[in-house]
């Protein structure tokens, strides 16, 4: 279904791998960086919308509206006024969600590209061969799947001599970084519909991502960690006040 994304993803990933000393871990990190650069407009718009929604919570006008339309019977009116305020402040309420949906196929394609490139089974290797258009493919196959302590084609576990079981380090990092990332995007107001969604995201997203990282290949978990860290860094770098924030700056009191 997503072959038109997966095939070029796989080729670019292998191309980067061939230039980075045949280190597939580094190739995943660099490739993730490239994907983030390509999807920068979506990410920036998502972060802008998320921040605007957060800052809206301390907007006096919004507080007045909430105060004015309290109670269940005014819920519809409150929503209408909220939409008006969004328009006034130039906030797109779906701005934080749509980019996520747009990136969904990219995440799935990345999963397939990593899985296919590592080709841990005969059918995966056959699929990999079909889509590979690099002239030196025969020299590169199979890709070196070892990175640090990990086999990127296997679920990641760190085994220490004094412990009887392996520690899923990457899954834990994915859990923490996914939580930080989703928390950053969450509006603070507990009564707001966006905040409810944010709370659900805060809960489900990190758990789901960590679970996927726990059961699937370390290569995919490495992609999640890299993309989460880049998101967090991007969020803090681009943390400038938006229109909604500017609107709440209190006016200086007039001198008597």
């Amino acid at each position: 279904m997503l072959e038109f994304i997966i095939v070029p993803f796989t080729n670019v990933l292998v191309f980067i791998y061939s230039f980075l000393g045949q280190n597939f871990g580094l190739a995943i990190i660099v490739f993730t960086l490239l994907v983030r650069l390509v999807t920068y407009p979506f990410n920036a718009s998502q972060m802008k919308s998320a921040k605007a929604m957060q800052e809206l919570q301390s907007n006096p006008k919004w507080k007045q509206i909430q105060e004015k339309y309290k109670g269940k019977e005014n819920r519809e009116k409150l929503a209408q006024e909220q939409m008006k305020l969004y328009q006034e402040l130039g906030i797109n309420p779906f701005g934080a969600c749509l980019p996520t949906l747009i990136q969904l196929p990219l995440i799935i394609a990345m999963y397939w590209a990593v899985t296919r490139a590592l080709a841990a089974t005969p059918l995966q290797l056959l699929d990999f061969a079909r889509g590979l258009s690099l002239s030196n493919a025969a020299d590169l196959i199979p890709l070196n799947s070892h990175f640090l302590w990990m086999d990127l084609g296997q679920p990641e576990r760190l085994y220490l001599d004094f412990l009887p079981i392996g520690i899923p380090v990457l899954a834990a990092i994915v859990l923490v970084t996914s939580y930080i990332q989703t928390k950053m995007m969450t509006p603070a107001n507990p009564g707001d519909q966006g905040a409810q969604m944010g709370r659900a995201m805060n809960l489900y997203m990190p758990i789901l991502m960590a679970y996927i990282s726990y059961i699937y290949s370390a290569g995919l978990a490495l992609y999640f960690v890299t993309t989460n860290v880049l998101s967090i860094v991007q969020y803090y770098i681009t943390r400038r006040p938006t229109a909604a924030a500017k609107a709440v700056v209190p006016a200086k009191p007039k001198q008597p």
Partner: peptide, 24 residues
């Protein structure tokens, strides 16, 4: 609200080695 997450999980799970044959 959590549908996109469920969808992602479902798609990734369906792609995994645990479901369907990976050889002949």
């Amino acid at each position: 609200k959590i549908l996109p997450l469920l969808l992602l999980g479902l798609l990734l799970t369906a792609c995994g080695s645990g479901v369907g044959a990976v050889s002949w």
